[in-house]
């Protein structure tokens, strides 16, 4: 079937150009989080003891489970691309839905973690937070800001994959025309990579 694309319709029919554009966007995301990591690094170097004490407040078990959940979701989205390329549309759809399910599990665990911290009054602006030593309040500010921004990316990634699920269902995205699925996969892997750094920096360094 011939496909016609108007010059200024904003849709590219060139898969290579779409992929290149996606990578360029991912680079801006990397530098956004990279800047935040620099902030973390500087404040950690200035307040080593406070960061150490504050990091004991975080739940390593929940953090580890969330790491495994995100790594496994990266596996399922990568497998869904292979499945679709092999013409196994049903399997690809199940794997994409599994990825969305893993993202929900991640968000539920994150909710309970945040809930516990907020219950202890550690959210920026709360009474207990105000009474913390300066270094510890910096740690919790960065914790909420960086994991919050990451969680926002998880939500956006899950919605992106949800849109691709619909398009695969209607055969708009297929094994030969699978750029949108591949791009959603790239975005999802980036979200995974950011968590790979957040996890040890906030939870593990004792």
């Amino acid at each position: 079937m011939e496909q016609y694309v108007l010059p200024n319709s904003g849709h590219s029919s060139n898969p290579e150009a779409s992929k290149l554009g996606m990578w360029l966007f991912l680079f801006t995301e990397l530098l956004l989080f990279g800047g935040l990591f620099l902030v973390y690094m500087v404040y950690r170097a200035l307040n080593p003891e406070a960061f150490l004490i504050a990091s004991y407040e975080l739940n390593i078990t929940m953090g580890t489970i969330n790491t495994v959940v995100l790594l496994t979701s990266s596996l399922t989205i990568a497998m869904s691309i292979s499945a679709l390329q092999k013409g196994k549309k049903g399997l690809a759809l199940y794997l994409m839905l599994a990825t969305i399910a893993f993202s929900l599990i991640f968000m539920v665990i994150k909710f309970f973690e945040w809930n516990a911290k907020i219950h202890h009054g550690l959210f920026p602006g709360m009474e207990h937070y105000q009474s913390l030593p300066h270094g510890e309040s910096l740690f919790f500010f960065l914790y909420f800001f960086m994991t919050g921004l990451h969680a926002l990316h998880v939500i956006i990634g899950a919605i992106f994959i949800g849109i691709v699920v619909v398009k695969v269902g209607t055969d708009e995205v297929t094994g030969d025309q699978g750029t949108l699925l591949e791009n959603s996969g790239l975005y999802w892997h980036l979200v995974d990579i950011i968590w790979i750094y957040l996890f040890p920096l906030f939870y593990l360094i004792h």
Partner: peptide
């Protein structure tokens, strides 16, 4: 002890694995 350097080395290895194979 898991110093910043060890933690970052392992995290970077993981990021490279994700980028090279999954991405």
């Amino acid at each position: 002890s898991l110093t910043v350097v060890t933690a970052l080395a392992i995290a970077t290895t993981k990021a490279i694995v994700v980028g090279y194979y999954f991405m």
